[in-house]
């Protein structure tokens, strides 16, 4: 299966420096469970993933919405 290219390629939280964790989470959310249904249609996406936060009780995980476009390379 061709590699899925996301635009933008990196995803980040404005509060937490979690882009290394968020980028694969967004990528996974776009690919996960949708591969069988991704035939034609619009190539834009909008997913909800959990930003892990700072990992503390006061500043924990919170949901974020990310938007972009996908294409097959």
């Amino acid at each position: 299966m061709p590699e899925l290219k996301l635009t933008p390629s990196t995803f980040a939280c404005r509060i937490h420096d979690n882009r290394e964790k968020l980028t694969p989470l967004v990528r996974g959310a776009v690919i996960q469970r949708t591969a069988a249904f991704m035939v034609g249609g619009a190539n834009d996406f909008r997913v909800v993933v959990e930003c892990p936060g700072a990992g503390t009780k006061e500043d924990g995980a919170h949901p974020l919405t990310f938007s972009g476009k996908w294409s097959r390379e």
């Binding site: 933008p8 990196t10 995803f11 980040a12 882009r19 249904f37 997913v47 909800v48 949901p63 919405t65």
Partner: peptide, 22 residues
């Protein structure tokens, strides 16, 4: 080339929950 996350709307959360059934 960085996409920043937004606060999800209730609509986003509802659809995300529905998406988990697939």
């Amino acid at each position: 080339d960085v996409g920043y996350g937004e606060e999800p709307t209730q609509d986003d959360l509802d659809w995300a929950e529905y998406g988990k059934t697939f």
